[in-house]
């Protein structure tokens, strides 16, 4: 057989397999989200979006194209991009469905702790916004999420060599940007959503 079995196929149909996947990968998703958004409610929505998208996509996972973790990073990137690109539309959709709802105090507290801890990462994330999309994608995964260059290349479906080139260019560009940025006092995080 040319295709290895899909180890993630079961998470779309077996609740126990899904729970195992969820518990194993929740730390990745927590960190990924906290490095990108400063609002606990939005972080919660994104967390739900990412795991739902993972369940949707699990039957199509190809183990030959990277680890489950790398695959999940790709899904998470899509979820955040969707949220950013269509934020207003997404908010309308949320409102249509249920409206923004409060998290319980413990969830807010823990989400806020993670968000506070990742303040520097979010500064970096925002500073990356000026980069070309291809360079930004590699830098995000390597500098922000701590992936190896090869893993980042897998996530993005590009060669490791190409990833390294993009990374080098991005770092060169961003070095200057960050130097400027750090001269500005950092203000407290603002609530993203109303």
């Amino acid at each position: 057989m040319s295709h290895p079995p899909n180890p993630l196929a079961s998470i779309a149909v077996d609740p126990d397999a899904l729970e195992s996947f969820y518990r194993q990968h929740l730390p990745i998703v927590r960190g990924f989200v906290a490095r990108r958004v400063a609002d606990p409610e939005l972080a919660a929505d994104l967390t739900a979006d990412i795991f739902l998208a993972a369940i949707d996509a699990a039957p199509g996972y190809d183990p030959g194209r990277g680890s489950p973790s790398g695959w999940l990073y790709g899904i998470a990137r899509h979820a955040v991009a969707t949220q950013r690109r269509g934020e207003a539309r997404a908010q309308r959709a949320l409102t249509r469905v249920a409206g923004r709802r409060p998290l319980q105090v413990d969830a807010i507290t823990r989400a806020q702790e993670r968000i506070d801890a990742e303040r520097g990462a979010r500064l970096l994330y925002e500073a990356m916004s000026a980069l070309p999309a291809g360079q930004r994608a590699v830098l995000e995964l390597v500098a922000l999420d701590g992936l190896a260059v090869r893993e980042a290349a897998d996530v993005l479906g590009i060669s490791p060599v190409s990833a390294r080139v993009r990374l080098h260019r991005a770092r060169t560009f961003l070095g200057a940007a960050l130097t400027c940025e750090t001269t500005t006092p950092f203000t407290s995080p603002t609530e993203v959503l109303t």
Binding site: S20, R23, Q24, H25, L26, P27, I28, A44, T47, S69, L103, Q104, D106, A107, R110, A111
Partner: peptide
């Protein structure tokens, strides 16, 4: 990754 047993109420 280690299995996460400590979930908050939302998780």
């Amino acid at each position: 990754n280690p299995t996460t047993t400590d979930l908050d109420s939302f998780e």
